[in-house]
Design a binder for these strands. Structure first.
Lengths: 191, 191
DNA sequence: CCGAGACTAGACAGACCTGTCTGCTATCGT
DNA sequence: ACGATAGCAGACAGGTCTGTCTAGTCTCGG
């Protein structure tokens, strides 16, 4: 079994871990291949035989972020039973994340800001946004919103704003602010 | 008088205009000096004698954006007399801007996403954010909000979210959504 | 034991980056 | 008329970037 506890993680996994740290902290364009392979302790040829190009490494990095975000968010919501608490819990989870030291805002927005349109970055960013919107729609539906589509749109705006604000102000307070507004909207949208 | 209608704009002005277009459209790190001077029709030596370094050109670009944003926003608000309309007018102006073809979100956030912390980009971005927050505070105060500080914080979240959402979805709709939420918050905050 | 697959180290090519320097030209105030 | 200022064109240096290639090492199934 190739899956059973290798003493060392595979080159692919180490590359992804290194890319995740460096790309998120400093930007996908700022960080060169040499820094990634140095931190991963991997030969350059391994990177290119595994991913083919830097662009594909960036895509893999963002896909990993997308998956991590989904699992972290869904796991965080399991704490709550009441549908309203679950909806507001999204902002709790964001607030916790925004309070951690390395927080630098939305990885997809950041990567998109320094990538040309039409590339792999845009693809993954679109998928991530669609998922977020769908999540809010379902939560709004479960919470009994009269117009779940409108509420979901509003919650997405609040979420984006909280993430961007927490990053720019280096202060997770914006997530609490957004949570408060979301609670008011939810109350108004469900009688 | 050195100010009287030169047939050609000065090298400084042409450099700033070129930098503004290219940096905003493609990112400050992606665009090299050579592209800027080529579009400006200016010699490289002129750039370095005028600005000293690319970093300083980037700062000048962002300072220009900051000033343009202030004048555009304040001019846009002059359409309205009622303090509530003026407050909501910020989202109208944002929506108009987000609907123009070249819109790519907040220039300060974008530049910050690809710049190291502690540089000139962060300085200008902080100044721009402080100004925005102050504007919303004054508008909230004029509109008679019970707690203008809290309302201003909420409006900043909405503004950031509208800007980010419009950029990522390539759709200015988020600005209208934010305006709607702002109107509800304003109504609730003023009786 | 042996051969295949995965990996490492590092040289190399070719492009592009910022920043400097030299030399030339045009304009303008005095 | 003349010097100062501003600007232009482009070569150049030194660094960094992505991506390729060679050659050697390690591990493991059969």
């Amino acid at each position: 079994m190739s899956v059973a506890s290798p003493r060392k993680a595979s080159a692919r996994d180490r590359l992804l871990a290194a890319a995740d740290e460096l790309f998120y902290a400093e930007g996908v364009h700022t960080v060169g291949i040499d820094r990634v392979i140095e931190r991963a302790g991997v030969a350059k040829a391994s990177l290119y035989s595994t991913f083919g190009s830097k662009d594909e490494l960036v895509r893999a990095y963002l896909e990993g972020r997308h998956e991590l975000r989904r699992t972290r968010l869904l796991a965080g919501l399991e704490r709550y039973d009441d549908p309203r608490d679950r909806l507001l819990g999204v902002f709790e989870v964001l607030g916790e994340l925004a309070g951690t030291p390395g927080f630098r805002g939305c990885a997809f927005y950041n990567a998109s800001a320094e990538s040309p349109a039409g590339g792999p970055v845009e693809e993954v960013a679109n998928a991530n946004r669609a998922w977020t919107k769908g999540l809010f729609y379902e939560l709004a539906l479960d919470a009994g919103a009269k117009d779940p589509v409108t509420l979901a749109d509003q919650l997405v705006v609040l979420y984006d704003g909280a993430s961007a604000g927490a990053r720019m102000d280096r202060n997770p307070q914006a997530a609490q602010t957004a949570r408060g507004v979301a609670a008011a909207l939810l109350a108004a949208a469900t009688f």
